[in-house]
C-alpha cells in the first residue's frame, strides 16, 4: 500500500514540489497550509510520514510537531521539518519538539527522497 505523507507548508510552491517528488516515487500525499490545517488533516486517516515547514502562520512547524507527538497515532510517525539553511537553532528546536529529522531547503528530488528513505519505514 502506498505510504501516506502529510505535507505541510504555507508556500504552495514548496508543497507542490514536495508532493510531486514523492508522488512520482509512489507515495500518496495530503497537503496542509499550516500547522492548524495539518492538525485537522491529521485526524483523518493514518500517515507514514509528516513533512512540515517551520515558519508558517497560525501554527508553526515546531508547535505542530509537539502537538502531533501528543497524539498516540503520531507517537512513532517520522516527522521531518523543512528548514531554509543549515540553521542549527531550528534543527535543535525541531528535535526538542520531537521531530525525527530535517530537510534543508533548497533540496533536489534525490536529496529529498534520500532523507525520506532514511526515516520512513
Amino acid at each position: 500500500m502506498a505510504k501516506r505523507v502529510l505535507v505541510v507548508d504555507d508556500s504552495k510552491t514548496m508543497r507542490d514540489m514536495v508532493s510531486f517528488t514523492l508522488k512520482r516515487e509512489g507515495y500518496e500525499t495530503v497537503e496542509a497550509e499550516d500547522g492548524m490545517d495539518a492538525l485537522q488533516s491529521s485526524t483523518v486517516g493514518n500517515f507514514d510520514l509528516v513533512i512540515s515547514d517551520v515558519n508558517m502562520p497560525r501554527m508553526d512547524g515546531i508547535t505542530l510537531t509537539k502537538e502531533l507527538r501528543t497524539k498516540p497515532q503520531f507517537r512513532s510517525t517520522p516527522i521531518l521539518i523543512l528548514t531554509t539553511e543549515a540553521d542549527g537553532t531550528k534543527k535543535a528546536a525541531g528535535k526538542a519538539a520531537g521531530a525525527t529529522g530535517w530537510i534543508v531547503k533548497p533540496f533536489d528530488p534525490d536529496q529529498l527522497l534520500g532523507v525520506v528513505k532514511r526515516v520512513c519505514r
Binding site: 515558519n55 502562520p57 497560525r58 501554527m59 508553526d60 515546531i62 508547535t63 509537539k66 542549527g88 537553532t89 534543527k91 535543535a92 528546536a93 525541531g94 528535535k95 526538542a96 519538539a97
Partner: peptide
C-alpha cells in the same frame, strides 16, 4: 542534547 531553542513564534 543541543540547546533547546524551541520557542514557538507567538503568531
Amino acid at each position: 542534547p543541543q540547546n533547546q531553542n524551541d520557542k514557538a513564534d507567538g503568531e
